[in-house]
Amino acid sequence: MSALDFLAFSAPPMLIALLAALACALPGNFLLLRRQALLGDAISHVVLPGIVLGFLLTGGASTPAMMAGAALAALAAAALIELLQRSARLDPGVAMGATFTAMFALGVLALELSGAGAVHLDVEHALYGNLESLIWFDATDWSALITPATLATLPPELFRMAATLALLAALCWLFWRPLVILTFDEGFARSLGLPVRLLSAGIVAAATLAAVAAFAAVGSILTIAMLICPPAAARLCTHRLGPQVALSLVFAAASALIGYVLGGYGPLWLGLPASVSAAGMIATTSGLILATAALWHKR
């Protein structure tokens, strides 16, 4: 494979995977410390019906519509979980499990019935993502990198993920202090007069935003894995929050890059005919990093 092929076929999906991994790992740190790690799992399931809804209403893969649908679905799920916990007094785990499976089932049902599968979106994409197909056709020449018209033909997911990551990073930087106080000691945060409910909802909203943006590009496995594994591995390596977040980003980036390369080229090196799912390989890599951290940590 020439360097130019790399630019056209491997660089864009790799970059998208990298951005998605970073965007998920960042809010994942706070979910982990607030013992809400499984919320990441729930979110990446419930956004499916929303994305399908947005898709059906606009008849195409319109990003704003799919985002709006996903946000709506996340809100509906939050309301359902609240209802099951408050009105039916169910355990949080049960309320969450019942809700996210039902909403995921609804999403699958809508996909199968609508025939959206025939166009662009199908169950397999939702589960595995379609990372490998996010290529840059117009990169036939190195000059593509400096030609605005060609740059505009980069996969839109690239810009979407970059914008999401930039937004989340800015929010995290801006609200770092109140987030740390809230996460460590909610009672103290309240006595300081911090808007505790708003901040808590903000963390969930940030994770949802990351999950929605990543879901469309890289599928649900990668989203869940990146929300949980890199922060968990970093958590085992340090006693300080700043280094934890930084380390989680390093782990996320390493998972994305190593996983992508292993998925794309690993089977070829072994003499096997085809490549395997990059998203799956990235999730696996992040799990191996966590396993290594757990072995090293020993406690």
Partner: peptide, 30 residues
């Protein structure tokens, strides 16, 4: 470890599932 049970569940779920998808796509490729 100190990551807690819920994170442990989520981590195992996504990792094993990811590995499963890798193997499934390998089988498809064969």
């Amino acid at each position: 470890t100190r990551i807690g049970q819920d994170a442990a569940i989520g981590a195992v779920l996504s990792t094993f599932y990811g590995a499963g998808v890798v193997i499934l796509t390998l089988i498809q490729g064969l």
